[in-house]
Amino acid sequence: MGNCGSGDGCATRNFDQPLRLGSHVFQSRLIVGTGKYSTYEAMRECLDVSGTECVTVAVRRERLVDQQGRNILDFLDLKRYTLLPNTAGCFSAEDAIRTARLGRELLLNLENPGADWVKLEVLGDKKTLLPDPVATLQATEQLVAEGFRVLCYTTDDPVTAKRLKEAGATSVMPAGSPIGSGQGVLNPNNIRICLEYLKDGDPDYPVIVDAGVGTASDVTIAMELGVDGVLLNTGIAHARDPLGMARAMRAGWEAGRLAYLSGRIAKRLYATASSPEEGVIGATRR
């Protein structure tokens, strides 16, 4: 350690594995959303600086009346980024399944490797955007049967997480806190239990914290818990300086991953001196 940031990279990075999600392999452990940027140009710059290789997109009706002629695809280098289509906005398993199929059809037409997978979101409540766990499980089963690799957005409930893995999810992606809330990882203990259950006998099973990231330290905290990656969008797009925050998020995951691999010290109630206790000069007479 100690040489991180030098041109040769650093020791810990060299023995880290890439992020494997189904058939996809990424060096960056950040998955970044493409929504809510002020302009497509700003989005493109932020994605570049974040270092991500995988970006999420949403499926929506083509605007047939008010066409500006600009499509997000004009601003995404499909050779560089694997697209991860989501089913955001769906409130039933049926709608999510149809949306997943439409995303696959779009990616097949674009010849992007993302055609085999989907970020499944089946929402249960408009105010919290919390997922409907029953409908998410049903949609997972159906999409897995149709050959999709399913990345499941879910809560941090460990039992739901286990059920989704059993249903064939390629990755379970518990939310740190509600989508766009910027509250970070609210219940690290649940994430820890999710990790323990999902990786039991299967240490390479990928777990991603999806949603809730407000700032770089939230990414670091998630990575330090031992998750395999973080998916975020609003934290960058709505920062005062999105480009600066995109850099910070990149540094955040790298710091957290290094810390996780390197092993933090145990917390103690009392101090332990860093300097030798022997050889201190004689006490001043008073």
């Binding site: 493409t34 929504g35 009706r61 083509e62 997000i72 289509p85 779009l106 969008n233």
Partner: peptide, 10 residues
């Protein structure tokens, strides 16, 4: 008919 495309999303 539903005619869809990709838009920005998270």
């Amino acid at each position: 008919l539903e005619v869809v495309t990709f838009v920005g999303g998270g």
